[in-house]
């Protein structure tokens, strides 16, 4: 192998290495997407929540009464809603799978106008009474309007 061929080979290897580094770095920054069959995911209305953040219309969320799960043998037994705004930080708890009236009133609060809320501490229970956590531990719901 001539000297120039060696240089060419080295530089091609270098280029490949840099490209792999760039690809893996950009992939590490993407949000994890969960699998609808194997992961335990929360269902809001008809939508399976498979990302940490979801965008939704405020009215669409208010039309949802229950949190459900994509696995038939599991149900939500408790969760909390955390709403944040400038100078406001409120946490409301539900002891069932129902989005309570207090939660809906807070989402509707026109004075504070929360731009996003979190669903946290979601606890699931199987038919035989075992407790589980969903794959998406917390869900950030950002309002489109």
């Amino acid at each position: 192998m001539t000297f120039s061929m060696k240089i060419i080979t080295n530089n091609i290897l270098l280029l490949v290495f840099v490209s792999i580094c760039n690809i893996s770095y950009s992939q590490s920054n993407t949000e994890k997407i969960y699998d609808h069959k194997t992961d335990t995911l929360i269902v809001l209305g008809e939508k399976i929540v498979d990302t940490y953040t979801i965008l939704i219309n405020r009215e669409a969320l208010l039309n949802i009464d229950l949190l459900s799960v994509n696995q038939n043998d599991l149900k939500v037994v408790s969760f909390s809603m955390n709403a944040l705004a400038l100078g406001q930080n409120i946490t409301l708890n539900s002891k069932s799978n129902v989005l309570t009236t207090e939660m809906k009133n807070e989402i509707l609060n026109k004075y504070i106008n929360y731009k996003f809320i979190y669903l946290k501490n979601i606890l699931l229970e199987s038919k035989d009474g075992q407790e589980f956590l969903p794959s998406t531990k917390n869900i950030k719901i950002v309002f489109k309007n």
């Binding site: 120039s4 240089i7 060419i8 530089n11 091609i12 270098l14 280029l15 840099v18």
Partner: peptide, 9 residues
């Protein structure tokens, strides 16, 4: 050519 590849590298 080698120089060009070094620059690209």
């Amino acid at each position: 050519k080698s120089l060009l590849i070094v620059v690209i590298g």
